[in-house]
């Protein structure tokens, strides 16, 4: 089958508020509902998830606030509350709910949130690493050999024990590696938020911004790589 993976990247700039109510054609001043005819308004598909949920583009988000906002908007948009409304309003409710659910799912998880922000800020499609990060190269190659050997022994034979023990310790090492990467990412998230809060438009600030994004990208992709190896390992040795 012929298909390309669709990029989730929307336009970079913040979308302007909708100008006109689809129903009464009056100027829409309200956030989600027309002030005049009280009809629900479609959330623009170009709206980024941060804006959709009413949060600034920061990587530290209060989970409780996020959840509260999600619940509030769910009550506003969910199809359950549009059963007696017109077909057009039902369609809008369905689209808005689906968008809201995606936005919440993305922002709820710190890693997905960062990947999404990176996508918005630097326009990167999620990068999937095919080769190990440089500092892990030797280690991973060796691990692959051990894994192959382990698989070849048929897993049940007596000879597996030392191999299995070795794989176990490898797994622990890699899991620690993953945690380290996540800790580094956490620091980068804080740096990003501070930089944004300062709101400087200097060359220095721009360079700092690019540095943080670049490092974030690298660590995110390394982490994904290690995480995949760990889960592969986990499913092999059980």
């Amino acid at each position: 089958m012929d298909h390309n993976t669709h990029s989730t990247a929307g336009p970079r700039e913040l979308q302007m508020a909708r100008s006109m109510c689809w129903h009464c054609q009056s100027e829409v001043a309200g956030e989600y509902f027309c002030d005049r005819c009280v009809k629900v308004q479609p959330v623009s598909k170009e709206l980024d998830y941060f804006t959709c949920l009413g949060f600034p583009r920061r990587l530290t988000i209060d989970q409780h606030q996020l959840e509260a906002k999600f619940y509030e908007l769910s009550r506003a948009f969910h199809p359950d509350f549009y059963q007696n409304k017109s077909a057009a309003e039902q369609t809008i409710s369905l689209g808005n709910s689906a968008m809201l659910n995606t936005a919440y799912r993305t922002l709820r998880d710190p890693i997905e949130r960062a990947e999404y922000l990176l996508d918005l800020e630097a326009g990167s499609v999620k990068e999937i690493r095919n080769s190990p990060p440089a500092d892990l190269f030797e280690e991973i190659l060796e691990l692959q050999d051990t894994l192959n050997e382990y698989r070849a022994t048929g897993r049940v034979s007596e000879t597996e024990s030392p191999l299995r023990a070795k794989l176990r310790s490898e797994r622990n090492t890699l899991e620690q590696r993953q945690r380290d990467m996540e800790a580094t990412l956490q620091q980068l998230f804080v740096q990003w938020d501070k930089l944004q809060d300062r709101g400087e438009a200097t060359d220095q600030a721009r360079a700092e911004r690019d540095r943080i994004l670049k490092q974030m990208r690298e660590h995110l992709s390394n982490r994904t790589y290690v995480k995949n190896i760990v889960s592969d390992l986990a499913s092999t040795i059980g």
């Binding site: 012929d2 298909h3 390309n4 993976t5 669709h6 689906a98 968008m99 659910n101 799912r105």
Partner: peptide, 23 residues
């Protein structure tokens, strides 16, 4: 995944003049 949920996928062709894609 919480429902309603949606996903979009972009499809194109690999051969000139191709008129259909099976999904």
């Amino acid at each position: 995944t919480t429902i309603p949920a949606s996903a979009k996928e972009m499809f194109t062709t690999y051969v000139d003049g191709q008129t259909g894609v099976d999904i």
